[in-house]
């Protein structure tokens, strides 16, 4: 199920201010860097407001230093943390044909494809349910890292543990469990 893409992989995260999209992008880049890869993580620049739609980005390259400093306009992967964004923001904007779309949703493939077409490799997970169960909160940013890794093997799942531990302290273990659970439960349509 994993795609081991060699060369540059560009990822765009969609969330709402306060949901941790930027944190997830950073954790992923730190995991990649710890594996000896090259990576950048950055928010869409500027002031942010809690609850407003936000985006964050990752560039990861297993071979060469990354030498572009500009927002990602044509991502390989789009990750949507908040299902309520699906009809607020055009989340597939610029997503490459045959790109990967990872969505936190209770819906099934048919329902999502009805709205977004089938140009993408689609991965779905009910991350809100997992987050409630494990963290007791609807904060799905770490959960969605697990979903991402199910469909793109861009880093090893274990490589996330160190950055998560450093970032979350006493609640790190719960977040790691959420990552693992999402990795198990994410369904991918080829």
């Amino acid at each position: 199920m994993t795609v081991n893409k060699i060369g540059l992989l560009e990822i765009r995260w969609h969330g709402r201010g306060g949901q941790g999209a930027v944190t997830s992008a950073e954790l992923l880049a730190q995991a990649a860097i710890d594996e000896g890869k090259y990576a950048q993580a950055f928010p869409a620049f500027g002031p942010e407001r809690r609850g407003a739609p936000v985006v964050a980005f990752d560039r990861i390259d297993s071979q060469s230093p990354i030498r572009v400093r500009a927002e990602i306009r044509e991502p390989d992967v789009v990750i949507v943390l908040d299902p309520t964004l699906l009809h607020v923001v055009r989340v597939t904007a610029g997503l490459k044909n045959n790109g990967i779309l990872v969505i936190n949703s209770r819906k099934n493939f048919e329902e999502i494809e009805k709205d977004f077409g089938s140009n993408w490799k689609l991965a779905l997970v009910d991350a809100t349910k997992i987050a409630y169960e494990i963290l007791g909160l609807p904060i799905v940013n770490t959960t969605m890292l697990g979903a991402l890794l199910k469909v793109v093997g861009v880093v090893k799942i274990e490589s996330l543990f160190k950055p998560i531990n450093e970032r979350f302290g006493h609640i790190a273990e719960k977040n790691i469990n959420a990552v693992k659970k999402a990795f198990e439960e994410t369904v991918v349509k080829e």
């Binding site: 950073e26 860097i33 950048q40 620049f45």
Partner: peptide, 12 residues
Amino acid sequence: TDGFYLTHVVEP
């Protein structure tokens, strides 16, 4: 150091 372009980026 360019604001945001560098200051807000996680990199190695």
